[in-house]
Write a protein that binds this DNA or RNA. Structure first.
Lengths: 244, 244
DNA sequence: CTCTACACTGTATGACGTACGCGATTATCG
DNA sequence: CGATAATCGCGTACGTCATACAGTGTAGAG
Protein backbone atom coordinates (compact mmCIF):
# COMPACT_ATOMS: atom_id res chain seq x y z
CA UNK A 1 0.00 0.00 0.00
CA UNK A 2 3.00 2.22 0.22
CA UNK A 3 3.43 4.78 -2.50
CA UNK A 4 5.99 3.48 -4.92
CA UNK A 5 8.48 5.88 -6.46
CA UNK A 6 7.08 6.58 -9.93
CA UNK A 7 9.92 5.03 -11.87
CA UNK A 8 9.80 1.87 -9.85
CA UNK A 9 6.10 1.58 -10.54
CA UNK A 10 6.69 1.90 -14.25
CA UNK A 11 9.57 -0.55 -14.13
CA UNK A 12 7.04 -3.09 -12.92
CA UNK A 13 4.64 -2.37 -15.73
CA UNK A 14 2.26 -0.31 -13.68
CA UNK A 15 1.75 2.25 -16.38
CA UNK A 16 -1.04 4.69 -15.70
CA UNK A 17 -4.00 3.59 -17.82
CA UNK A 18 -4.60 6.90 -19.46
CA UNK A 19 -7.52 7.41 -21.74
CA UNK A 20 -7.81 10.97 -22.91
CA UNK A 21 -5.49 12.67 -25.30
CA UNK A 22 -3.29 11.47 -28.14
CA UNK A 23 -2.10 7.91 -28.02
CA UNK A 24 1.41 7.68 -26.55
CA UNK A 25 4.12 7.27 -29.16
CA UNK A 26 6.71 6.06 -26.73
CA UNK A 27 6.95 3.70 -23.83
CA UNK A 28 9.49 3.13 -21.14
CA UNK A 29 10.79 -0.05 -22.75
CA UNK A 30 11.69 1.66 -26.04
CA UNK A 31 13.33 4.55 -24.28
CA UNK A 32 15.35 2.21 -22.14
CA UNK A 33 16.31 0.08 -25.12
CA UNK A 34 17.53 3.11 -27.02
CA UNK A 35 19.57 4.30 -24.05
CA UNK A 36 21.10 0.86 -23.63
CA UNK A 37 22.08 0.72 -27.29
CA UNK A 38 23.96 3.96 -26.88
CA UNK A 39 25.60 2.85 -23.65
CA UNK A 40 26.70 -0.40 -25.24
CA UNK A 41 28.16 1.39 -28.21
CA UNK A 42 29.77 4.42 -26.60
CA UNK A 43 29.66 3.97 -22.87
CA UNK A 44 27.67 5.83 -20.30
CA UNK A 45 29.18 9.13 -21.33
CA UNK A 46 27.36 8.89 -24.65
CA UNK A 47 23.98 8.62 -23.00
CA UNK A 48 22.34 12.00 -22.85
CA UNK A 49 18.67 12.79 -22.89
CA UNK A 50 19.12 14.48 -26.23
CA UNK A 51 20.90 11.54 -27.82
CA UNK A 52 18.35 9.06 -26.58
CA UNK A 53 15.49 11.21 -27.80
CA UNK A 54 17.12 11.68 -31.18
CA UNK A 55 17.44 7.93 -31.61
CA UNK A 56 13.69 7.68 -31.07
CA UNK A 57 12.85 10.54 -33.41
CA UNK A 58 11.50 12.62 -30.58
CA UNK A 59 12.27 15.90 -28.88
CA UNK A 60 14.40 15.63 -25.74
CA UNK A 61 11.64 16.81 -23.47
CA UNK A 62 9.35 14.09 -24.66
CA UNK A 63 11.23 11.61 -22.52
CA UNK A 64 10.28 13.38 -19.35
CA UNK A 65 6.74 12.04 -19.63
CA UNK A 66 8.21 8.65 -18.82
CA UNK A 67 11.22 9.26 -16.63
CA UNK A 68 11.33 11.97 -14.03
CA UNK A 69 15.01 12.60 -14.54
CA UNK A 70 18.09 11.21 -16.15
CA UNK A 71 18.92 9.38 -12.97
CA UNK A 72 15.61 7.60 -13.23
CA UNK A 73 16.51 6.49 -16.70
CA UNK A 74 19.81 5.10 -15.48
CA UNK A 75 18.04 3.19 -12.75
CA UNK A 76 15.72 1.58 -15.24
CA UNK A 77 18.62 0.80 -17.55
CA UNK A 78 20.47 -0.87 -14.71
CA UNK A 79 17.68 -3.37 -14.38
CA UNK A 80 16.62 -3.71 -17.96
CA UNK A 81 20.09 -4.61 -19.22
CA UNK A 82 20.26 -7.65 -16.97
CA UNK A 83 19.44 -11.05 -18.54
CA UNK A 84 17.79 -13.92 -16.74
CA UNK A 85 19.97 -15.53 -14.06
CA UNK A 86 21.60 -18.87 -14.88
CA UNK A 87 19.44 -21.93 -14.52
CA UNK A 88 19.72 -23.96 -11.42
CA UNK A 89 20.12 -27.38 -12.93
CA UNK A 90 19.72 -29.38 -9.79
CA UNK A 91 23.15 -28.09 -8.88
CA UNK A 92 24.24 -28.13 -5.25
CA UNK A 93 24.27 -24.69 -3.68
CA UNK A 94 28.00 -24.26 -4.01
CA UNK A 95 28.21 -25.05 -7.69
CA UNK A 96 25.24 -22.91 -8.48
CA UNK A 97 26.54 -19.92 -6.56
CA UNK A 98 29.86 -20.29 -8.33
CA UNK A 99 28.28 -20.11 -11.77
CA UNK A 100 25.93 -17.43 -10.56
CA UNK A 101 28.80 -15.22 -9.43
CA UNK A 102 30.78 -15.86 -12.56
CA UNK A 103 27.80 -15.04 -14.72
CA UNK A 104 27.35 -11.83 -12.80
CA UNK A 105 30.91 -10.86 -13.41
CA UNK A 106 30.71 -11.73 -17.08
CA UNK A 107 27.64 -9.58 -17.42
CA UNK A 108 29.47 -6.62 -15.93
CA UNK A 109 32.38 -7.18 -18.26
CA UNK A 110 30.15 -7.33 -21.29
CA UNK A 111 28.40 -4.11 -20.35
CA UNK A 112 30.97 -2.12 -18.39
CA UNK A 113 28.64 0.81 -17.85
CA UNK A 114 26.58 -1.40 -15.56
CA UNK A 115 29.38 -1.22 -13.02
CA UNK A 116 28.95 2.49 -12.61
CA UNK A 117 25.19 2.28 -12.53
CA UNK A 118 24.46 -0.78 -10.43
CA UNK A 119 26.63 0.28 -7.56
CA UNK A 120 24.49 3.29 -6.81
CA UNK A 121 21.13 1.66 -6.27
CA UNK A 122 20.00 -1.50 -4.52
CA UNK A 123 18.13 -3.92 -6.79
CA UNK A 124 14.55 -2.84 -7.22
CA UNK A 125 13.64 -3.99 -10.69
CA UNK A 126 12.33 -7.38 -11.74
CA UNK A 127 15.51 -8.61 -13.38
CA UNK A 128 17.96 -7.85 -10.63
CA UNK A 129 15.59 -9.10 -7.97
CA UNK A 130 15.25 -12.34 -9.83
CA UNK A 131 18.99 -12.84 -9.62
CA UNK A 132 18.80 -12.19 -5.92
CA UNK A 133 15.92 -14.62 -5.53
CA UNK A 134 17.69 -17.39 -7.37
CA UNK A 135 20.83 -17.08 -5.26
CA UNK A 136 18.84 -17.12 -2.05
CA UNK A 137 16.94 -20.11 -3.29
CA UNK A 138 20.18 -21.99 -3.81
CA UNK A 139 20.92 -21.51 -0.13
CA UNK A 140 17.44 -22.60 0.83
CA UNK A 141 18.30 -26.07 2.02
CA UNK A 142 21.25 -24.96 4.12
CA UNK A 143 20.97 -24.36 7.85
CA UNK A 144 21.81 -20.67 7.48
CA UNK A 145 19.32 -18.16 8.74
CA UNK A 146 17.83 -15.51 6.48
CA UNK A 147 20.25 -12.81 7.42
CA UNK A 148 23.23 -15.05 6.81
CA UNK A 149 21.92 -16.07 3.43
CA UNK A 150 21.40 -12.50 2.51
CA UNK A 151 24.85 -11.49 3.63
CA UNK A 152 26.39 -14.37 1.74
CA UNK A 153 24.78 -13.29 -1.48
CA UNK A 154 25.82 -9.73 -0.83
CA UNK A 155 29.42 -10.77 -0.42
CA UNK A 156 29.29 -12.71 -3.67
CA UNK A 157 27.71 -9.81 -5.51
CA UNK A 158 30.42 -7.57 -4.25
CA UNK A 159 33.09 -9.97 -5.31
CA UNK A 160 31.73 -10.13 -8.82
CA UNK A 161 31.74 -6.36 -8.98
CA UNK A 162 35.25 -6.14 -7.64
CA UNK A 163 36.58 -8.69 -10.06
CA UNK A 164 34.95 -7.04 -13.01
CA UNK A 165 36.11 -3.61 -11.96
CA UNK A 166 39.66 -4.74 -11.54
CA UNK A 167 39.80 -6.41 -14.93
CA UNK A 168 38.25 -3.44 -16.58
CA UNK A 169 40.30 -0.80 -14.81
CA UNK A 170 43.67 -2.39 -15.39
CA UNK A 171 43.10 -3.24 -19.02
CA UNK A 172 43.91 -0.06 -20.86
CA UNK A 173 42.30 -1.55 -23.93
CA UNK A 174 38.85 -1.21 -22.41
CA UNK A 175 36.56 0.51 -24.85
CA UNK A 176 34.85 2.53 -22.16
CA UNK A 177 35.43 6.23 -22.11
CA UNK A 178 38.18 7.10 -19.65
CA UNK A 179 39.27 3.52 -19.14
CA UNK A 180 42.87 2.88 -18.39
CA UNK A 181 45.11 5.53 -16.98
CA UNK A 182 45.33 9.02 -18.40
CA UNK A 183 48.44 8.08 -20.30
CA UNK A 184 48.85 4.78 -22.05
CA UNK A 185 51.30 3.33 -19.56
CA UNK A 186 50.60 -0.11 -18.22
CA UNK A 187 49.76 -0.41 -14.58
CA UNK A 188 52.78 -2.49 -13.79
CA UNK A 189 55.14 -0.02 -15.40
CA UNK A 190 53.69 2.79 -13.36
CA UNK A 191 54.21 0.91 -10.12
CA UNK A 192 57.74 -0.04 -11.04
CA UNK A 193 58.60 3.55 -11.79
CA UNK A 194 57.11 4.98 -8.68
CA UNK A 195 57.53 2.57 -5.78
CA UNK A 196 60.24 3.26 -3.26
CA UNK A 197 61.32 -0.04 -1.67
CA UNK A 198 61.81 1.74 1.65
CA UNK A 199 58.23 2.86 2.07
CA UNK A 200 56.56 0.06 0.10
CA UNK A 201 58.74 -2.91 0.95
CA UNK A 202 56.30 -5.73 0.37
CA UNK A 203 54.72 -4.39 -2.74
CA UNK A 204 57.96 -3.52 -4.45
CA UNK A 205 59.46 -6.88 -3.52
CA UNK A 206 56.51 -8.49 -5.21
CA UNK A 207 56.99 -6.31 -8.23
CA UNK A 208 60.62 -7.27 -8.45
CA UNK A 209 59.87 -10.96 -8.21
CA UNK A 210 57.73 -10.51 -11.25
CA UNK A 211 54.50 -12.02 -10.03
CA UNK A 212 52.62 -8.79 -10.38
CA UNK A 213 52.84 -6.39 -13.21
CA UNK A 214 51.18 -8.66 -15.69
CA UNK A 215 47.78 -7.39 -14.79
CA UNK A 216 46.37 -9.41 -17.64
CA UNK A 217 46.67 -12.29 -15.27
CA UNK A 218 43.49 -11.15 -13.66
CA UNK A 219 41.55 -11.70 -16.78
CA UNK A 220 42.20 -15.35 -16.41
CA UNK A 221 39.51 -17.24 -14.71
CA UNK A 222 41.84 -18.82 -12.20
CA UNK A 223 42.36 -15.57 -10.34
CA UNK A 224 38.67 -14.94 -10.11
CA UNK A 225 38.07 -18.49 -8.99
CA UNK A 226 40.59 -18.08 -6.20
CA UNK A 227 38.73 -15.42 -4.31
CA UNK A 228 35.43 -17.04 -5.12
CA UNK A 229 36.56 -20.27 -3.54
CA UNK A 230 37.75 -18.30 -0.56
CA UNK A 231 34.24 -17.08 -0.01
CA UNK A 232 32.55 -20.37 -0.72
CA UNK A 233 34.96 -22.20 1.54
CA UNK A 234 33.96 -19.83 4.26
CA UNK A 235 30.29 -20.48 3.67
CA UNK A 236 30.85 -24.20 3.60
CA UNK A 237 32.74 -24.09 6.86
CA UNK A 238 29.91 -22.18 8.46
CA UNK A 239 27.34 -24.63 7.18
CA UNK A 240 29.30 -27.54 8.55
CA UNK A 241 29.65 -25.83 11.89
CA UNK A 242 25.93 -25.08 11.94
CA UNK A 243 24.91 -28.57 10.91
CA UNK A 244 27.34 -30.62 12.98
CA UNK B 1 62.11 4.76 -17.24
CA UNK B 2 58.60 4.56 -18.54
CA UNK B 3 56.82 7.80 -19.15
CA UNK B 4 54.45 8.38 -16.28
CA UNK B 5 51.06 9.87 -16.96
CA UNK B 6 51.45 13.52 -15.98
CA UNK B 7 49.00 13.46 -13.09
CA UNK B 8 50.58 10.40 -11.59
CA UNK B 9 53.94 12.10 -11.72
CA UNK B 10 52.59 15.10 -9.88
CA UNK B 11 50.82 12.91 -7.37
CA UNK B 12 54.24 11.62 -6.41
CA UNK B 13 55.69 15.06 -5.97
CA UNK B 14 57.53 15.10 -9.24
CA UNK B 15 56.58 18.64 -9.98
CA UNK B 16 58.44 20.07 -12.93
CA UNK B 17 61.14 22.28 -11.39
CA UNK B 18 60.22 25.29 -13.37
CA UNK B 19 62.24 28.40 -13.03
CA UNK B 20 61.13 30.99 -15.54
CA UNK B 21 57.93 32.89 -15.33
CA UNK B 22 55.82 34.11 -12.43
CA UNK B 23 55.95 32.11 -9.26
CA UNK B 24 53.06 29.64 -9.12
CA UNK B 25 50.26 30.72 -6.84
CA UNK B 26 48.72 27.29 -6.65
CA UNK B 27 49.89 23.78 -6.20
CA UNK B 28 48.27 20.42 -6.67
CA UNK B 29 47.86 19.88 -2.95
CA UNK B 30 45.81 23.03 -2.41
CA UNK B 31 43.64 22.33 -5.40
CA UNK B 32 43.01 18.82 -4.23
CA UNK B 33 42.30 19.98 -0.70
CA UNK B 34 39.76 22.49 -1.94
CA UNK B 35 38.05 19.91 -4.09
CA UNK B 36 37.90 17.47 -1.20
CA UNK B 37 36.35 20.08 1.05
CA UNK B 38 33.59 20.57 -1.46
CA UNK B 39 33.09 16.86 -1.95
CA UNK B 40 32.89 16.31 1.79
CA UNK B 41 30.35 19.07 2.19
CA UNK B 42 28.15 18.56 -0.85
CA UNK B 43 29.13 15.32 -2.48
CA UNK B 44 30.81 14.72 -5.78
CA UNK B 45 28.09 16.56 -7.65
CA UNK B 46 29.19 19.80 -6.03
CA UNK B 47 32.71 19.47 -7.36
CA UNK B 48 33.08 21.44 -10.55
CA UNK B 49 36.17 23.08 -11.88
CA UNK B 50 34.55 26.45 -11.39
CA UNK B 51 33.61 25.81 -7.80
CA UNK B 52 37.04 24.53 -6.92
CA UNK B 53 38.68 27.50 -8.58
CA UNK B 54 36.35 29.92 -6.83
CA UNK B 55 37.29 28.46 -3.46
CA UNK B 56 40.92 29.18 -4.26
CA UNK B 57 40.24 32.69 -5.49
CA UNK B 58 41.29 31.79 -8.97
CA UNK B 59 39.75 31.63 -12.42
CA UNK B 60 38.54 28.20 -13.53
CA UNK B 61 41.13 27.86 -16.24
CA UNK B 62 43.93 28.38 -13.80
CA UNK B 63 43.51 24.83 -12.56
CA UNK B 64 44.37 23.33 -15.89
CA UNK B 65 48.04 24.13 -15.38
CA UNK B 66 47.98 21.45 -12.73
CA UNK B 67 45.43 18.84 -13.65
CA UNK B 68 44.91 18.25 -17.33
CA UNK B 69 41.24 17.43 -16.88
CA UNK B 70 38.57 17.02 -14.29
CA UNK B 71 39.06 13.29 -14.32
CA UNK B 72 42.66 13.84 -13.37
CA UNK B 73 41.53 15.89 -10.43
CA UNK B 74 39.20 13.12 -9.29
CA UNK B 75 42.02 10.61 -9.52
CA UNK B 76 44.23 12.73 -7.33
CA UNK B 77 41.39 13.28 -4.88
CA UNK B 78 40.80 9.56 -4.67
CA UNK B 79 44.28 9.11 -3.33
CA UNK B 80 44.69 12.26 -1.36
CA UNK B 81 41.58 11.73 0.75
CA UNK B 82 42.89 8.45 2.08
CA UNK B 83 44.52 8.49 5.54
CA UNK B 84 47.34 6.26 6.63
CA UNK B 85 46.41 2.59 6.97
CA UNK B 86 45.88 1.21 10.47
CA UNK B 87 49.00 0.27 12.37
CA UNK B 88 50.01 -3.31 12.48
CA UNK B 89 50.54 -3.72 16.19
CA UNK B 90 52.16 -7.08 16.11
CA UNK B 91 48.73 -8.41 15.20
CA UNK B 92 48.42 -11.80 13.54
CA UNK B 93 47.53 -11.58 9.89
CA UNK B 94 43.90 -12.36 10.43
CA UNK B 95 43.26 -9.73 13.06
CA UNK B 96 45.11 -7.13 11.13
CA UNK B 97 43.27 -7.80 7.90
CA UNK B 98 40.00 -7.63 9.79
CA UNK B 99 40.74 -4.18 11.17
CA UNK B 100 42.21 -3.17 7.85
CA UNK B 101 39.06 -4.09 5.98
CA UNK B 102 36.85 -2.46 8.56
CA UNK B 103 38.91 0.70 8.45
CA UNK B 104 38.60 0.72 4.71
CA UNK B 105 34.85 0.44 4.92
CA UNK B 106 34.64 3.16 7.53
CA UNK B 107 36.67 5.44 5.34
CA UNK B 108 34.27 4.92 2.48
CA UNK B 109 31.32 5.61 4.74
CA UNK B 110 32.84 8.80 6.04
CA UNK B 111 33.54 10.05 2.52
CA UNK B 112 30.87 8.45 0.35
CA UNK B 113 32.12 10.13 -2.80
CA UNK B 114 35.20 7.94 -2.59
CA UNK B 115 33.07 4.98 -3.54
CA UNK B 116 32.28 6.46 -6.91
CA UNK B 117 35.83 7.58 -7.50
CA UNK B 118 37.95 4.71 -6.24
CA UNK B 119 36.13 2.08 -8.21
CA UNK B 120 37.22 3.54 -11.50
CA UNK B 121 40.96 3.50 -11.09
CA UNK B 122 43.40 1.02 -9.63
CA UNK B 123 45.52 2.42 -6.80
CA UNK B 124 48.35 4.48 -8.19
CA UNK B 125 48.92 7.13 -5.57
CA UNK B 126 51.10 6.93 -2.47
CA UNK B 127 48.26 6.64 0.03
CA UNK B 128 46.27 3.88 -1.58
CA UNK B 129 49.39 1.93 -2.42
CA UNK B 130 50.47 2.13 1.17
CA UNK B 131 47.21 0.46 2.21
CA UNK B 132 47.89 -2.24 -0.32
CA UNK B 133 51.43 -2.69 0.90
CA UNK B 134 50.38 -3.00 4.50
CA UNK B 135 47.81 -5.67 3.76
CA UNK B 136 50.26 -7.67 1.71
CA UNK B 137 52.80 -7.35 4.45
CA UNK B 138 50.36 -8.85 6.91
CA UNK B 139 50.22 -11.95 4.73
CA UNK B 140 53.98 -12.05 4.44
CA UNK B 141 54.59 -14.91 6.87
CA UNK B 142 51.89 -17.10 5.41
CA UNK B 143 52.64 -19.84 2.87
CA UNK B 144 50.55 -18.15 0.19
CA UNK B 145 52.25 -17.21 -3.04
CA UNK B 146 52.28 -13.67 -4.32
CA UNK B 147 49.32 -14.04 -6.58
CA UNK B 148 47.24 -15.54 -3.82
CA UNK B 149 48.14 -12.76 -1.46
CA UNK B 150 47.22 -10.21 -4.00
CA UNK B 151 43.92 -11.86 -4.76
CA UNK B 152 43.11 -12.10 -1.10
CA UNK B 153 43.62 -8.43 -0.59
CA UNK B 154 41.57 -7.71 -3.67
CA UNK B 155 38.69 -9.72 -2.34
CA UNK B 156 38.84 -7.86 0.96
CA UNK B 157 38.96 -4.52 -0.76
CA UNK B 158 35.94 -5.45 -2.76
CA UNK B 159 34.10 -6.57 0.30
CA UNK B 160 34.74 -3.27 2.03
CA UNK B 161 33.42 -1.46 -0.98
CA UNK B 162 30.37 -3.66 -1.20
CA UNK B 163 29.55 -3.26 2.45
CA UNK B 164 29.92 0.48 2.32
CA UNK B 165 27.89 0.76 -0.85
CA UNK B 166 25.09 -1.30 0.57
CA UNK B 167 24.87 0.71 3.75
CA UNK B 168 24.96 3.92 1.87
CA UNK B 169 22.52 2.95 -0.85
CA UNK B 170 19.84 1.56 1.43
CA UNK B 171 19.95 4.37 3.95
CA UNK B 172 17.73 7.02 2.47
CA UNK B 173 19.12 9.42 5.01
CA UNK B 174 22.45 9.48 3.23
CA UNK B 175 23.47 13.07 2.65
CA UNK B 176 24.90 12.34 -0.75
CA UNK B 177 23.14 13.76 -3.75
CA UNK B 178 20.80 11.19 -5.24
CA UNK B 179 21.09 8.80 -2.34
CA UNK B 180 18.09 6.72 -1.52
CA UNK B 181 15.43 6.01 -4.02
CA UNK B 182 13.74 8.64 -6.10
CA UNK B 183 10.83 8.74 -3.70
CA UNK B 184 11.26 8.58 0.02
CA UNK B 185 9.96 5.03 0.41
CA UNK B 186 12.07 2.61 2.37
CA UNK B 187 13.66 -0.22 0.49
CA UNK B 188 11.74 -2.87 2.37
CA UNK B 189 8.42 -1.23 1.64
CA UNK B 190 9.19 -1.15 -2.04
CA UNK B 191 10.01 -4.83 -2.11
CA UNK B 192 6.89 -5.74 -0.18
CA UNK B 193 4.73 -3.80 -2.58
CA UNK B 194 6.24 -5.19 -5.70
CA UNK B 195 7.24 -8.82 -5.18
CA UNK B 196 5.02 -11.52 -6.55
CA UNK B 197 5.44 -14.68 -4.47
CA UNK B 198 5.06 -16.80 -7.59
CA UNK B 199 8.05 -15.41 -9.44
CA UNK B 200 10.13 -14.48 -6.40
CA UNK B 201 9.30 -17.26 -3.98
CA UNK B 202 12.39 -17.20 -1.81
CA UNK B 203 12.77 -13.50 -1.56
CA UNK B 204 9.17 -12.82 -0.74
CA UNK B 205 9.10 -15.60 1.82
CA UNK B 206 12.02 -13.91 3.48
CA UNK B 207 10.27 -10.60 3.37
CA UNK B 208 7.21 -12.10 4.98
CA UNK B 209 9.19 -13.69 7.75
CA UNK B 210 10.43 -10.24 8.57
CA UNK B 211 14.14 -10.81 8.60
CA UNK B 212 14.71 -8.44 5.76
CA UNK B 213 13.15 -5.09 5.32
CA UNK B 214 14.96 -3.53 8.21
CA UNK B 215 17.82 -2.54 6.02
CA UNK B 216 19.28 -0.60 8.91
CA UNK B 217 20.44 -3.97 10.11
CA UNK B 218 23.29 -3.73 7.71
CA UNK B 219 24.67 -0.73 9.44
CA UNK B 220 25.37 -2.90 12.40
CA UNK B 221 28.83 -4.21 12.53
CA UNK B 222 27.71 -7.79 12.97
CA UNK B 223 26.48 -8.04 9.40
CA UNK B 224 29.71 -6.72 8.06
CA UNK B 225 31.68 -9.03 10.27
CA UNK B 226 29.75 -12.01 8.94
CA UNK B 227 30.95 -11.74 5.38
CA UNK B 228 34.37 -10.69 6.50
CA UNK B 229 34.73 -13.84 8.56
CA UNK B 230 33.53 -15.81 5.58
CA UNK B 231 36.45 -14.52 3.60
CA UNK B 232 38.99 -14.85 6.36
CA UNK B 233 37.83 -18.37 7.15
CA UNK B 234 38.47 -19.20 3.55
CA UNK B 235 41.95 -17.77 3.70
CA UNK B 236 42.68 -19.58 6.91
CA UNK B 237 41.52 -22.87 5.45
CA UNK B 238 43.78 -22.37 2.49
CA UNK B 239 46.74 -21.56 4.69
CA UNK B 240 46.18 -24.66 6.76
CA UNK B 241 45.92 -26.75 3.65
CA UNK B 242 49.09 -25.23 2.29
CA UNK B 243 51.02 -25.59 5.49
CA UNK B 244 49.89 -29.04 6.59
C1' DC C 1 -19.94 19.53 -30.69
C1' DT C 2 -17.47 21.09 -26.78
C1' DC C 3 -14.41 20.42 -23.18
C1' DT C 4 -10.40 18.90 -21.14
C1' DA C 5 -6.65 15.68 -20.05
C1' DC C 6 -2.77 14.40 -22.18
C1' DA C 7 1.45 13.65 -25.54
C1' DC C 8 4.82 15.90 -27.41
C1' DT C 9 7.40 20.34 -29.18
C1' DG C 10 10.06 24.81 -29.07
C1' DT C 11 12.41 27.80 -26.74
C1' DA C 12 15.13 29.28 -23.00
C1' DT C 13 18.20 29.08 -19.01
C1' DG C 14 22.01 28.25 -16.30
C1' DA C 15 25.76 25.27 -15.42
C1' DC C 16 29.47 22.82 -16.97
C1' DG C 17 34.17 21.28 -19.21
C1' DT C 18 37.61 23.06 -21.63
C1' DA C 19 40.01 25.08 -26.19
C1' DC C 20 42.38 29.28 -27.37
C1' DG C 21 45.00 33.22 -26.97
C1' DC C 22 46.32 37.13 -23.92
C1' DG C 23 49.24 40.18 -20.98
C1' DA C 24 52.11 39.99 -16.98
C1' DT C 25 55.98 38.10 -14.64
C1' DT C 26 60.58 36.51 -13.88
C1' DA C 27 64.77 33.46 -14.39
C1' DT C 28 68.18 32.93 -17.68
C1' DC C 29 71.40 34.24 -21.33
C1' DG C 30 73.95 37.57 -24.04
C1' DC D 1 72.23 45.23 -17.39
C1' DG D 2 69.09 44.42 -21.00
C1' DA D 3 66.87 41.16 -24.11
C1' DT D 4 64.72 36.66 -24.45
C1' DA D 5 61.62 33.27 -23.72
C1' DA D 6 59.14 30.31 -20.69
C1' DT D 7 55.45 30.11 -17.66
C1' DC D 8 51.56 31.83 -14.95
C1' DG D 9 46.78 32.82 -14.27
C1' DC D 10 42.94 35.30 -16.78
C1' DG D 11 39.08 36.40 -20.16
C1' DT D 12 36.51 34.99 -23.58
C1' DA D 13 34.06 31.74 -26.07
C1' DC D 14 31.98 27.46 -27.64
C1' DG D 15 29.43 23.34 -27.48
C1' DT D 16 26.88 20.27 -24.59
C1' DC D 17 23.95 19.10 -21.13
C1' DA D 18 19.67 18.65 -17.94
C1' DT D 19 15.59 20.55 -17.43
C1' DA D 20 11.85 24.46 -16.54
C1' DC D 21 7.95 26.56 -18.86
C1' DA D 22 4.58 27.47 -21.98
C1' DG D 23 2.45 26.18 -25.78
C1' DT D 24 -0.09 23.10 -29.70
C1' DG D 25 -2.51 19.72 -31.47
C1' DT D 26 -5.05 15.26 -30.47
C1' DA D 27 -8.72 12.38 -29.04
C1' DG D 28 -11.76 10.48 -25.63
C1' DA D 29 -15.65 12.05 -22.33
C1' DG D 30 -19.73 14.63 -21.61
Amino acid sequence: MAELPPVVARMWGREPVSRRGPRPRLDLASITAAAIEIADAEGLAGVSMGRVAARLGVAPMGLYRYVGSKEDLLTVMADSAVPAPPDRGGLPWRDYLATWTRAHRDLLLSRPWLMAVQGGTPPMGPRRLSWLDRALEALGATPLDDGEKFNTVTALTGYALTGATLVHATSAAGGERGAGIAGAAEYGEVLAEVLDPRTYPTLSAMMRSGTLGRSEGWVEDADFAFGLDLLLDGVEALIRRRAG
